[in-house]
Design a binder for these strands. Structure first.
Length: 518
RNA sequence: GCGGAAGUAGCUCAGCUGGUAGAGCAUCAGCCUUCCAAGCUGAGGGUCGCGAGUUCGAAUCUCGUCUUCCGCUCCA
């Protein structure tokens, strides 16, 4: 761990040093699990988003993009299940330092203690009475069983009431009254029950049709903005099934433990595509997108750093789910999820809103709620995968015939923040002027960087460190025959070409269109 | 959220047992040279994370707080 931990620390330090990522609100000591993207970071992030958008929306005639609001009607989160499922009452045992969900603690107690006791008595009696055993009669008359059944009912009544009222104090009292102890430490030394709602909330007055007319959530996922716009989009774009809606946007989760740099943040950005299909065809499309998405990753990331990981237990909305995992410095972790979400979301919104969210299928001559296959990737995780895959420290020959270490970001040229650096060999003899002229030719098509400070070798290294794939060097010969040196970041090889050929050559080498067409 | 560790210049750190801050690299200006970093001269830059306490005096001791890292926990 220490070596990979060191590597990860180096990457984080590098991100800060070269203006990729800063801690949020650093002058005020920072804000936990929130980060800002600096100048190079913003460029890389934009490129990642563009790569996804082009591959999804522009390359597929049956996928369209939207940009829905972060604020949405509170009922949406009721329908999606987030209000219920994102609410965990948690309690800590002070001795074992373990954290439990208070509700499962109580449920387990009821299940394993009370119910088990009752069943034990019943089983014993059944053995004793043989065929003449009447379960109903026994349960309602045996004093020990009756007491336990009574007790169970009491606990369950209090429990359901407490859960319904979000009464955390009562939940703790139930645990105390039932004398539930920590399975590890065996003690009953509990903290208070605290509720961790993973959704951030804010205020808005007068929300139509809402019981609590002020509470509003910041969306914990972008997908719902797509679902509730399903019919708007389908009708206005006249799409036929199967078709998809794509969206890039911010989402917010109040993670209890948000760590590992930008891997898990409280504010993050998602790129989601919901693909609407006829019921029964979802598994075919699930397999299709599973393959398509891995291909998209393979274009910019080596195969051996990517893998599929099937979900062991499925979320409440899904009937199939797989992750595409990337080997981060801290191990293989989820980068993208592909889920077959069935008709759960649309059906749920249809029921709660009372509006039909169905598609009329001309071929089948019937209306139905489409099934959904979702691809969902975190922009920030993709960013982290690109950076951690790119970061390398290598030994290279130096001018004196020895070796030196260079730090290089081997970012795919199509994603690199700066495409080309324009460097006059000397800061005199008209070379800066000639360089500026070349820069002016390129900068409207390619993100360029000009520098004439320090030695040429030093400038090359600086460009390596920010991941610029090409350096153009202007020397005295340029003034005579219009040729320049084009230096490649990865091989460090140089070639002499005419300055008029620069634009086409660098554009071709840094284009993301080729990745998408391939 | 719990436990452990840490926080001194942009970065990496030194500053031992309390006496009002240093180095290297980086930055900026100038010189020299020039196709793969670390030549010469000079300059700028620090509320010692923040707040309180002890003390004549705190970067140094105590407490609180924030942030980061590690472990636990959680994870749609």
């Amino acid at each position: 761990m220490s070596q990979t931990g060191d590597q990860f620390k180096k990457i984080i330090a590098h991100c800060k040093e070269y203006g990729y990522i800063f801690q949020s609100s650093e002058v005020y000591d920072g804000l936990a699990a929130v980060y800002d993207y600096g100048p190079y970071g913003a460029e890389l992030k934009n490129n990642i988003k563009a790569y996804w958008w082009k591959a999804m929306v522009h390359a597929n005639e049956n996928i369209v993009g939207i940009d829905s609001a972060i604020f949405m009607h509170p009922k949406i989160w009721k329908a999606s299940g987030h209000v219920d499922a994102f609410n965990d009452p948690l309690i800590d045992n002070k001795d074992s330092k373990k954290r439990y969900r208070a509700d499962t603690l109580i449920e387990e107690y009821v299940e394993k203690k009370l119910t088990a006791k009752i069943e034990k008595e019943v089983a014993k009696a059944a053995k004793r009475f043989g065929d003449s055993f009447d379960r109903e009669q026994f349960v309602s008359t045996n004093p020990r069983v009756v007491a336990n059944v009574e007790k169970r009912k009491k606990v369950m009544d209090r429990f359901t009431a407490a859960m319904a009222n979000n009464d955390m104090a009562e939940l703790k009292q139930i645990i105390i009254d039932a004398e539930i102890s920590d399975p590890i430490s065996g003690t009953k030394n509990w903290t208070d029950v605290r509720q961790f709602n993973l959704m951030f909330s804010t205020q808005m007055s007068n929300i139509a049709g809402s019981e609590d007319d002020s509470k509003l959530y910041l969306r914990p996922e972008t997908a719902q903005g797509i679902f509730v716009n399903f019919l708007n989009v389908q009708k206005t774009t006249r799409q036929k099934l199967p078709f998809g809606i794509a969206q890039i946007g911010k989402a917010f989760r109040n993670e209890i433990v948000a760590r590992q740099f930008i891997f898990r943040m409280k504010e993050f950005e998602q790129m989601e595509m919901q693909f609407f299909v006829a019921p029964g065809t979802e598994m075919k499309w699930y397999e299709h997108w599973k393959a398509e998405r891995l291909k998209w990753h393979h274009q910019v990331t080596p195969n051996e750093k990517l893998r599929y990981h099937d979900h062991d237990n499925l979320a409440h909305y899904a009937n199939a789910a797989v992750d595409i995992e990337f080997e981060f410095p801290f191990g293989f972790k989820e980068l993208e999820g592909i889920h077959s979400r069935t008709d759960f979301d649309l059906r749920s919104h249809q029921e709660l809103s009372g509006r039909k969210l169905q598609y009329f299928d001309n071929e089948k001559n019937e209306s139905y709620v489409p099934y959904v296959v979702e691809t969902s990737i975190g922009v920030d995780r993709m960013f982290l995968s690109v950076i951690s895959n790119a970061f390398k420290e290598e030994e290279v020959p130096d001018a004196k015939g020895g070796t030196s270490t260079r730090t290089v970001l081997n970012i795919h040229p199509a994603l690199a923040p700066v495409k080309v650096a324009v460097l006059p060999l000397l800061k005199k003899d008209g070379l800066p002027e000639a360089s500026r002229a070349i820069m002016d030719e390129l900068k409207y098509d390619l993100n360029c960087f000009y520098e004439d400070k320090d030695t040429i070798g030093k400038r090359y290294r600086r460009q390596d460190a920010v991941g610029t794939p090409f350096c153009i060097t202007i020397d005295h010969q340029t003034l005579e025959d219009d040729t320049v040196t084009l230096r490649d970041r990865d091989s460090m090889k140089q070639e002499r070409i005419n300055k008029n050929a620069l634009l086409d050559k660098v554009k071709a080498a840094t284009s993301m269109i080729n990745l998408i067409k391939a």
